[in-house]
């Protein structure tokens, strides 16, 4: 469980996070949603320690990040898997080497053990034919899957994904969403996902945190989000015509 208490963050005098408090639960897919520029990435990067909050605390199963020593922080980070918005694969390495990287760096596994584990996770994300390709030689969707494979290869306790399906077609998006949810349940991971994709919200939104201009405007589950009266949320949810029509259809049925 990750607890966020009153986290604030400003850049050049502009407050981007205006005091966020929430919890992200273990074994669940927790979603951070909100419009572009609402502060999702900044919140995620604050959880990761890439940004240091100006005030407030973040604790990982009781370990308060700001009170840890440098070594403790690095140990905590080996328990974290992260899928960046732009995948952030190492472009000097092949797919296989990218995925093997955390194992080579942080475990004492033999080459054979590493290969076995890498083959397993690469199969898990359905990339059987990409082992020896470089990131520049595969599509954006495949890069995302490599990034997911790299994030989960060392059995993380915490998994963070920044827009895992931005730029992907709806079908591939669902495959990736389901993959992340399965992995989360299977290994009891605390997963936090940034998204503005309503399909993901409907598929895997077990806990949803809605940000609006750096303020936590609403939180709840995917069942609750379609019932809420919160104007900001409905405005965001029904900004797409498709969902507007679904709601109208539902209203007619009732």
């Amino acid at each position: 469980m990750i607890e966020v208490k009153n986290v604030k963050k400003s850049f050049n005098g502009v407050e981007v996070l205006k005091g966020i408090s929430t919890t992200f639960e273990t074994g669940k897919t927790n979603l951070i949603i909100g419009q572009s520029g609402s502060g999702k990435t900044v919140l995620l990067k604050s959880l990761l320690g890439i940004h240091t909050p100006d005030s407030g605390t973040i604790s990982f199963d009781g370990r308060i990040y700001s009170e840890l020593t440098d070594d403790e922080r690095r140990d905590l980070r080996t328990e974290i898997g992260m899928v960046f918005q732009g995948s952030a694969l190492f472009d000097s390495m092949t797919v296989e080497e990218n995925v093997a990287f955390p194992l080579k760096m942080f475990t004492n596994k033999t080459i054979a053990e590493i290969k076995e584990r890498v083959d397993f996770v690469i199969d898990r994300v359905h990339l059987e034919n990409a082992h020896t390709k470089k990131p520049s030689e595969i599509s954006g969707g495949m890069q995302k899957r490599v990034a997911i494979a790299r994030a989960i290869v060392n059995n993380p306790k915490y998994l963070f994904c920044d827009e895992p399906n931005s730029g992907l077609d709806p079908k591939t998006s669902i495959v990736i969403d389901n993959l992340i949810q399965e992995i989360t349940e299977e290994y009891n991971i605390t997963t936090v996902i940034n998204t503005h994709d309503m399909n993901s919200v409907m598929e895997i939104g077990e806990k949803i945190v809605f940000l609006k201009q750096g303020v936590l405007a609403w939180e709840g589950s995917k069942r609750e989000i379609f019932k809420t009266d919160n104007a900001a949320v409905t405005d965001f949810v029904y900004s797409s015509n498709l969902f507007k029509k679904i709601r109208e259809a539902q209203n007619k049925e009732v």
């Binding site: 990067k45 990761l48 320690g49 890439i50 922080r73 690095r74 140990d75 905590l76 980070r77 080996t78 974290i80 992260m82 960046f84 918005q85 732009g86 952030a88 694969l89 190492f90 472009d91 990287f101 955390p102 760096m105 942080f106």
Partner: peptide
């Protein structure tokens, strides 16, 4: 610099690499 702008350095740091 390219590793910095494509978040590869962040990726290293997040994994706990110096």
């Amino acid at each position: 610099g390219t590793m910095r702008v494509t978040e590869q350095i962040d990726a290293l740091e997040v994994m706990g690499v110096n």
